[in-house]
Design a protein around this nucleic acid. Sequence first.
DNA 1: GTCTATACCCCGATAGAC
DNA 2: GTCTATCGGGGTATAGAC
Lengths: 204, 204
Amino acid sequence: MTEVSGDETRAAIRRATFQALRRHGYANLSIAHIATELGKSKSLLYSYYESKDDVLVALLDHTIEGYGSDPSLSADTSIEDTLKQFLETLLVPPDVDEESELIAVLLELRVQAVSDIAYRERFTILDQRLRITITDMIERGIEAGEFASVDATRIAAHVVLIINGMMLQQATTAADASMPTGPRQMLYSYLDETLGTNYVVDRR
Amino acid sequence: MTEVSGDETRAAIRRATFQALRRHGYANLSIAHIATELGKSKSLLYSYYESKDDVLVALLDHTIEGYGSDPSLSADTSIEDTLKQFLETLLVPPDVDEESELIAVLLELRVQAVSDIAYRERFTILDQRLRITITDMIERGIEAGEFASVDATRIAAHVVLIINGMMLQQATTAADASMPTGPRQMLYSYLDETLGTNYVVDRR
DNA sequence: GTCTATACCCCGATAGAC
DNA sequence: GTCTATCGGGGTATAGAC
């Protein structure tokens, strides 16, 4: 089918755009760079997308589509583990390709929201979705008696705030010996203290 | 003196660059835009700076120079108030010009650190400085018996994490009714609970 | 110190062949 | 579906007059 082939090409273009973004950064990203990464000519891109902006938005939409969706584990897994695993996928997302530099790319795209309304809408919804998912998990944990009886909405908003801070710091600062502990430990300690659980984290 | 005049021109160029950044965003910022904002010709900029990048870095250095320095209030002010006022200046910085959109500009510059080592170094140091300043304040508060006896270094790192998250959210998402409370309240509640103080915030 | 003019390059996008 | 060739425009940076 032509459609399938078209979809595959679109997927290939997205991957190429992702790689080009990693290599050159948003500021220096050009159609030529994407085409080189794709191994095809520039003009081919215009058979699938109307403009450069169109390509970028398609990448963004595809990237945040699955990002931050509830992993919904089997029923015998504790809510604590489910929450923990969920947060891990946010901070160290499953490999998109070889290297998991998704956070850096996502951040570069996100900052376009400062001037671009289309981007702003998408990240507003993304944060919202994250807060709702985490709120639900905490509430389930409270009902199950696993967590202390806290204001789930408030905690979830705080967690999303921390996650965003972590992404920004992780992508824009060098490793810093002055940090008392890794940012991921800080998030887990916070949850530990707030929810009354005891997160054990695998160090990296 | 020619030097003084030169410094004044440099300052004017920084202000023009700041305004141009606000109006066009980092991605669309050009020498021509800066010159228009300055009310002078493009080539004049090259009498004061070697390149466009040079202009941007100069703006960055000047901006973060004063940013996050201890306000060091008079001795009769409580440490709680000093800390509170300090955090306020970070989140709603003193007017640079008319509109205080410094956070958006600072964020756009910061994200260049994803690909640019010069930027990364500067923001690593900035975060470091912030953590140290806040750690000192908390420790002074503990010594004075104003705060509970907590791990100041850890709390400070957490606060910087939250501040960075707030900046990112504030600049890249629309106002969101699903938020339980403003992000500033969330920061103050966190400090309240952690330090055992009782922050009262002026709502906006 | 500040200008005009211009060199030179790269970019996004299109036309049209195969 | 994919290519080569090319157009028009805007970008950074420089030369040289005033």
